[in-house]
């Protein structure tokens, strides 16, 4: 049986000696996108907490449903909007891409 655990043999310098560190929390427009989705998720949670217990119907549908549909619409708007933004501001061809974008060194 061929079992590989090559990571044990790999040369793994400490993080401080890495030439580049790619982070979970991006820079630039990536940070705006993350912030937006985290914000609307927290907003949904808060609105559900504050208003989810109220037996209100709007156009025959429970308020809970409306809260969730609005959360869905904000997500759709975010995906489409940020996708268009990313495409409009997309990087130049690979060979000319500045390495600093979305990286932390």
């Amino acid at each position: 049986m061929k079992w590989n655990e090559d990571w044990r043999k790999a040369n793994r310098p400490p993080a401080s000696q890495h030439p580049k560190i790619y982070t979970f929390w991006p820079r630039g427009r990536g940070r705006v996108i993350f912030g937006y989705f985290i914000f609307i998720t927290l907003l949904d949670y808060i609105v559900l907490t504050l208003f989810g217990g109220r037996p209100i119907l709007i156009a025959g549908m429970p308020l809970l449903i409306w809260i969730t549909v609005i959360f869905a619409l904000l997500t759709i708007a975010g995906i489409l909007g940020f996708d268009a933004w990313n495409k409009n501001q997309s990087s130049p061809p690979v060979a000319n891409t500045p390495q600093a974008e979305d990286n932390e060194s």
Partner: peptide, 19 residues
Amino acid sequence: TKPQSPEQVEKFHGLLARE
């Protein structure tokens, strides 16, 4: 603990950063 080797990081994260 230590992260992956710089070569491995570039193979994955570097590619994604470029693409």
